[in-house]
Simulated assay, not measured.
Amino acid sequence: MKPVRRRIRRHFGLTAKQVAVRSKRPWYFQWGITVLYVVFGYGIAYWQFAGAEDVHQKLRQTALENQTLHTKIIQVERQLQIEQAAQTNLAQQLNKVQDENMHIKQDLVFYKNITNAKRLAK
């Protein structure tokens, strides 16, 4: 058991050798990667700002469409109000005509009863 402990302590203990593995890259390779990242970042920023004009144009177009749709909604609401007013007027006139019709039918029945009474009396 002791040899196993010793081996473990040699590799992981306080007395173990400290080793650091580093990959050494040439300076021109690291500068090349840095330049590549900067160019890539600049390209993304340019793409974002260049595309912003297109977004503004779409926003203006959407605002105009919104305004035209708003005017259409107002026109449809006014037309609906006119139709509702006409419908209420027609309903009132229909009620009046039905009342007149009922009154005329009552008069007709009354006159028929009078004429039938005269025929029976003769």
Rank of each mutant, 00 (worst) to 15 (best):
R60E: 12
V39Y: 01
Y46C: 07
W27K: 12
Q81A: 06
R78N: 13
R78E: 09
W31S: 09
I82E: 15
I114S: 06
A52D: 07
R78M: 12
H56W: 14
A117S: 15
E77D: 14
Q57R: 15
G43D: 00
F29G: 02
N101M: 07
F110C: 04
Q87G: 05
V76M: 15
I8H: 15
P26R: 13
D54S: 11
F12D: 03
I44F: 00
Y111N: 01
Y37Q: 13
I114T: 15
L36R: 11
N101P: 05
N95K: 11
V109Q: 12
L59K: 07
L108N: 11
Q106W: 00
V38R: 04
D107M: 09
H56V: 14
Q84I: 03
D107W: 02
V4D: 08
A121V: 01
K112H: 05
L69A: 03
T62R: 08
Q67F: 05
L90I: 05
A45V: 07
L59W: 02
R6V: 14
Q106P: 01
N101H: 05
T115R: 10
Y46T: 09
R9M: 08
M102Q: 14
R6H: 08
A85K: 12
L108K: 13
V97D: 12
K96D: 00
T34H: 00
E83G: 08
V39I: 15
Y46H: 09
T71D: 03
N89R: 01
K58Q: 08
E53C: 13
H70G: 12
A63S: 11
L36H: 08
F110Q: 07
W31T: 09
G43A: 11
R22L: 08
T71G: 02
K118Y: 04
V35H: 03
R7A: 10
L90M: 05
Q93A: 05
T68K: 09
K96V: 04
E83P: 00
G13K: 08
L69N: 04
F29P: 00
Y42N: 11
T62C: 01
Y28A: 14
K2M: 09
Q57K: 14
